[in-house]
């Protein structure tokens, strides 16, 4: 069984009231350990509702969700184990910082697990290093004296210190300046590549998705509208446009070139690939 497995998952908010809203309708999806999945879709398409099922913050109205073999549609499911394995980083996680020092903030989760002091120390230092924050220089500072990008990284370290198998991030780069964005996304890529973490990334940026993920799941109106390898998804530009999404700027350039009769590959994702494709077309046309 896959690490995360949803079968016919439906979620209805405020069922039986005049405010009833169907957020997910019949989502079937499986995510294998060690993959990097991009979750895309317009506002209100059900992305946030879906990821909250992955660590049992929400339970299915109908259908099933299994995480690491635990059936979360069962009321008595072992939620604690699931929450330890799936770390959720919400939008603007720095709003949830609260301790007096960076160290204490990151240590909050591990302390609640009742770990030994030494183990806590190791985990905090490790987690801070993973997000590029020097534990010696920053550990004793107040989290509120940090820059926006640093606060964001400390908040993510707090989730990493729980040593989850799966990291789910909702727009981790929103509101950061262009370099802050690149730094944080680079660190997430490193976590995936070097620690083998399974990563699920919600983003509105097609460029971010193209840079990072292996597979894209597109949500629309509570359903999975598209699901496949990143290159294949960005070949379907018209379908993406019909649900209000687009393709990365570089992919869009290739499509414009093809419309002008230049025979470049359409499924280009990065600047490097575009460079090669353009040289080839200019040489051989």
């Amino acid at each position: 069984m896959a690490l995360i497995e949803c079968v016919d998952l439906t979620h209805v908010y405020l069922r039986g009231t005049p405010l009833e809203a169907v957020a997910l309708r019949g989502v079937t999806l499986s995510i294998d350990a060690g993959t990097f999945v991009g979750l895309l879709g317009p506002t209100g398409s059900g992305k946030s509702t879906l990821i909250q099922h992955f660590n049992a913050l929400l339970r299915p109205t109908s259908g099933t969700v299994h995480v690491a073999g635990i059936d979360l549609s069962q009321p008595r499911a072992d939620v604690k184990t699931v929450r330890r394995q799936v770390g959720l980083v919400f939008q603007y996680p720095e709003h949830q910082l609260f301790e007096e020092t960076v160290f204490d903030d990151v240590a909050y989760g591990p302390r609640n697990l009742g770990l030994a002091t030494e183990e806590i120390q190791d985990r905090v230092q490790d987690a801070l290093r993973l997000v590029g924050v020097d534990p010696d220089a920053f550990g004793r500072r107040s989290p509120f004296s940090l820059s926006g990008g640093e606060m964001r990284r400390v908040a993510i370290a707090g989730v990493l210190a729980m040593q989850p198998q799966v990291l789910v991030l909702d727009e981790p780069a929103a509101g950061l300046d262009p370099q802050g964005k690149q730094e944080i996304l680079g660190q997430i890529r490193t976590l995936h590549r070097e620690r083998g973490l399974t990563v699920i990334l919600i983003t509105h940026s097609m460029d971010e998705a193209a840079q990072l993920v292996d597979r894209i799941v597109v949500m629309n109106r509570g359903q999975v509208a598209m699901d496949g390898p990143v290159r294949g998804i960005f070949r379907r530009a018209d379908e993406l446009a019909s649900i209000g999404l687009g393709v990365p700027a570089i992919t869009d350039l290739m499509l414009r070139l093809r419309r002008r009769g230049v025979a470049v590959r359409p499924d280009v994702l990065s600047l490097e690939e575009a460079r090669a494709a353009i040289w080839e077309a200019v040489r051989w046309n």
Binding site: L253, R256, A281, N285
Partner: peptide, 17 residues
């Protein structure tokens, strides 16, 4: 702009035919 770059590359590609 993507459109300007596309036309520039397209005319280079045609020139070289």
């Amino acid at each position: 702009d993507a459109d300007d770059l596309a036309s520039a590359i397209a005319s280079l590609a045609t020139e070289r035919v």
